[in-house]
Amino acid sequence: MSAPVAGHGVTGAQDAGAFLVRLTRLDPGAVVRLRSHHGRTELWARLPWNVLVSRSVDGAGPGDATVVAADLLTQLARGGRSLPVRRDSDWRWGLPPDGARSVERLPSAELHRVAEAAAGTLRDATAHGVGGQPVGERALRDALLDHVAIVVTTDSTERIEISQRLVQGVTRMGFLGGRPSSEESDLSDVHVRIAGRWVGLAAPYGAAWLPAANQLGLRPATPRTFG
């Protein structure tokens, strides 16, 4: 980690603000953890569906501090440099270890498609039920989030399941950006990464992480397969 600086130490206010705006829309009371890393600041947060998301922004950062996301957003919006009241005890989650390795690349257009299909399924099921029977929206949402949307098979034959939770993490946080043109497709690809027991999607504007089930001894599934 870099040496801490006075205040929040974030100079990439636009990028940090984009992260915080999305985060606070999804969870107005969310906390964000700032970690200094090689002269930049990593922003970490946990979404309501238990996915960790991160974005690296300019600025040396405060070292390692947790604050209320809305308070930091207010500071950045007015050009303030002070670190909001620390809430370090409110951060209760582990982070993926360093040394993540990329095992596959996915087209961002595919993740857009998967996310949109899930949203359509939720709308239809909420309106018409499942098998003619009404189902609560929350139960439907939880079932969709747990659905395995993509399976990646690595060169060493590991089966890595990408759940809808991760897909929703990168799409709803805006990490994919807009739909790329054919010339931009390679730059907008999303990398599937493994770090210890964690599985992540690293998109152009941020990453989403979730602990893998059974240490990558994953269940059979019937989604689209890559690799």
Rank of each mutant, 00 (worst) to 15 (best):
V167H: 00
R165N: 01
W198M: 05
A203G: 08
P211Q: 05
D186K: 09
R179W: 05
S188T: 13
F175S: 04
Q164L: 08
Y205S: 10
R197V: 15
W209H: 02
M173F: 00
S163N: 01
T154L: 11
L218K: 07
W198Q: 01
T225G: 06
I162M: 03
T157G: 04
S181R: 13
T157Y: 09
G217L: 14
R165K: 10
S182A: 15
T153Y: 03
R179T: 09
G217W: 14
G217S: 15
L166D: 01
D186W: 07
N214A: 11
Q215A: 13
W209K: 02
R197S: 14
V170K: 10
T171M: 04
R159A: 08
Q168L: 00
G169T: 08
D155G: 15
R219T: 13
Q215N: 15
G177N: 04
P220G: 05
A195E: 05
P220E: 14
I194R: 07
G206P: 10
I160S: 03
T154G: 07
G169E: 06
T153E: 14
M173K: 04
P180H: 08
T154S: 12
R193W: 01
N214P: 03
S188M: 11
A203W: 07
Y205A: 12
V170P: 08
R197D: 13
S181K: 10
G169C: 08
G178I: 06
E158G: 07
L201V: 08
W198H: 07
S156V: 03
L201Q: 08
S182N: 12
T157P: 04
T171K: 13
W209A: 01
A202E: 11
G174T: 09
V167M: 00
I160A: 05
V190W: 00
P220Y: 09
V190S: 05
T222V: 11
R197K: 13
V152G: 03
R159T: 09
L187T: 08
A207F: 03
R224L: 12
S188F: 13
S185R: 14
W198F: 11
A212P: 00
Q164K: 00
R224F: 07
A208G: 13
G177F: 03
S185P: 00
G200Y: 03
G169Q: 09
V192F: 02
G200L: 09
V199D: 01
R193S: 06
T153D: 04
I162D: 02
Q168R: 08
E158R: 15
R159V: 10
S182F: 13
F175C: 06
V199T: 15
G178A: 14
P211H: 05
R179V: 12
M173D: 02
A212C: 07
T171G: 06
S188A: 15
E161K: 10
G200S: 13
E184N: 12
G169S: 08
G177I: 07
P223S: 07
A202D: 13
R224A: 10
D186C: 03
